[in-house]
Design a protein around this nucleic acid. Sequence first.
DNA 1: CAGGCTACCTGCCCGC
DNA 2: TGCGGGCAGGTAGCCT
Length: 292
Amino acid sequence: MPELPEVEVVRRGLDRHTTGRRVVDVDVLNVRAVRRHRGGGADFAARMRGVVLGEPRRRGKYLWVPLLADTDNHAEPGADALLAHLGMSGQLLVQPHDSPVERHLRVRMLLDDGLDLRFVDQRTFGGLSISEGGAELPAEVAHIARDPLDPAFDADDLYARLRRRRTGVKRALLDQTLVSGVGNIYADEALWRARLHYARPTDTLRRAEVTRLLSAVHAVMVEALGEGGTSFDALYVDVNGASGYFDRSLAVYGQAGEPCPRCGTPVRRDPFMNRSSFTCPRCQPRPRRGRW
DNA sequence: CAGGCTACCTGCCCGC
DNA sequence: TGCGGGCAGGTAGCCT
């Protein structure tokens, strides 16, 4: 799914379309979509009815919306939050209430302006829940590290933690407790930009290489955000159902056999963590003693 | 305990 | 045409 840029696109869309709106009615069509919610589907629906949606927030790939008691736009201390993770295929859509129902519609919330906020998720790896007292930072998100777009992101701390780890740099990038928001696409793109191989042991990284890598992660995410995110297909869309265009700018992800934009060497695909890693074999040579 | 594998789900694409 | 296998943007949980 959506990695940080795609989730941020969704967050901005929600901010524009749902902030200040009251939830009039809730329909949970698939309980699996709210499996993280203590109390189940009926409780989720009952507690969402009547609340006012605050300004959406995000850390990494997690998104949450403070729930307000009234339309004063006033989040009381300790207020609850609607917590969302899009998993691999989740979407949050704002649609007219009478528009055709999506094939994988899981939760539908009617707002007081006649629009629906819909959670659509083909694979149901994502989900919604209500986080008790989670308006500021949901407890479910507390174990996640800050993401590279967070002004308080601590690069020195990441460097220190990488040096202590005994793993490969891509595994570390994908570990949301070290740095959040990075998924398979942006990990490969950032590693290519920083000319690092995914199996490079993190305990051999120099400070300058970590700086280079973090700059690359930051840059690729900002650029992707500017293009509305990466959408290979209709699964990754903003709240209005529109696709992003960053797939046109991908250097290596999904580009097996295509020339490296920097040196022309064919991009290679390797199996990695039951998925794939894409590298330029010339720009990103495998380290002698690599770690997966 | 840190690291790493697998299950969780649906759909699509490819080869046989 | 059908079926099986592989693959897809993620992560929690269990194993070693």
